[in-house]
Amino acid sequence: MAASIPVDDERYVLESQIRELYGRCAYTHKTHEKMAERASTYLWRVKWTQIILSALTTGGAIGVVFDANSAIYPLATAALSILMLIVNSYVKDIDPGQDAQLHRDAASDIWNVREAYLSLLTDIRDLAFSLDDIRKRRDELQGQLHLIYKAAPHTNAKAYSQAQDALQKNEDLTFTDAEIDAFLPSSLKRARST
């Protein structure tokens, strides 16, 4: 186990900053995942609303054909057609599927940087890595992250709140040794049976 770094040490200060960057990255990654989930759910709802309205409109049209004397079928069909026109007009200029994909892509890119920060946190404890090497790597990661953020779609407070719940309450990024051991061959397990 690595020795802890003294609080007044320059390495400790650098580690503290990288820990902060890692945390921000983790939140941003999870927020983009939540935005993608929200956009996918919205797309699913819109598509099902369109299908249901279309089916009901078709049913009303069939009702008019087979019961021409009824006044309810033409009125219901007209009302459903107007409702379907409103829904289709509302969603014609938005593409929740594309929005979901943009958020998935951003999350994937951010995940890669987040994992690089985690590796850097591990490397900082190795005294073979100089502070200059660590700073250089930190600056490279910051540059990568800037390019990702610049191209990424915006997120909202609701997705951030969901990300916060996932990370703090559901512990999405944490694993017990037993959970990790379940994925590893016996030679790499921490909890060895005796």
Score class of each variant (00 low, 15 high):
residue 133 D to V: 02
residue 109 D to I: 05
residue 171 E to I: 09
residue 165 D to M: 07
residue 96 P to I: 12
residue 85 L to S: 13
residue 176 T to Y: 09
residue 131 L to I: 07
residue 158 K to D: 08
residue 147 L to G: 06
residue 173 L to F: 11
residue 99 D to Y: 07
residue 88 N to Y: 13
residue 123 D to H: 12
residue 110 I to E: 07
residue 117 Y to K: 05
residue 86 I to Q: 03
residue 139 D to W: 09
residue 125 R to M: 14
residue 126 D to S: 12
residue 146 H to A: 12
residue 114 R to H: 01
residue 161 S to F: 08
residue 103 H to W: 05
residue 90 Y to I: 13
residue 110 I to Y: 04
residue 127 L to I: 04
residue 179 E to A: 08
residue 98 Q to D: 09
residue 153 P to E: 10
residue 144 Q to N: 14
residue 110 I to T: 11
residue 140 E to P: 07
residue 180 I to A: 04
residue 161 S to I: 03
residue 115 E to R: 15
residue 92 K to S: 06
residue 138 R to F: 09
residue 146 H to F: 13
residue 112 N to Q: 15
residue 87 V to Y: 10
residue 172 D to M: 14
residue 144 Q to P: 05
residue 126 D to I: 11
residue 179 E to Y: 09
residue 169 K to V: 10
residue 84 M to C: 09
residue 156 N to T: 10
residue 93 D to P: 06
residue 107 A to Y: 02
residue 114 R to L: 05
residue 139 D to T: 10
residue 99 D to K: 15
residue 172 D to R: 11
residue 130 S to V: 04
residue 82 I to T: 09
residue 103 H to T: 08
residue 169 K to N: 08
residue 149 Y to D: 14
residue 167 L to P: 00
residue 81 S to E: 05
residue 158 K to I: 06
residue 120 L to V: 03
residue 161 S to H: 07
residue 164 Q to E: 15
residue 170 N to T: 11
residue 154 H to N: 11
residue 167 L to K: 02
residue 83 L to G: 00
residue 119 S to W: 06
residue 164 Q to V: 11
residue 137 R to P: 00
residue 105 D to M: 06
residue 125 R to V: 11
residue 154 H to F: 07
residue 106 A to E: 03
residue 126 D to R: 06
residue 156 N to Q: 13
residue 121 L to M: 15
residue 118 L to I: 07
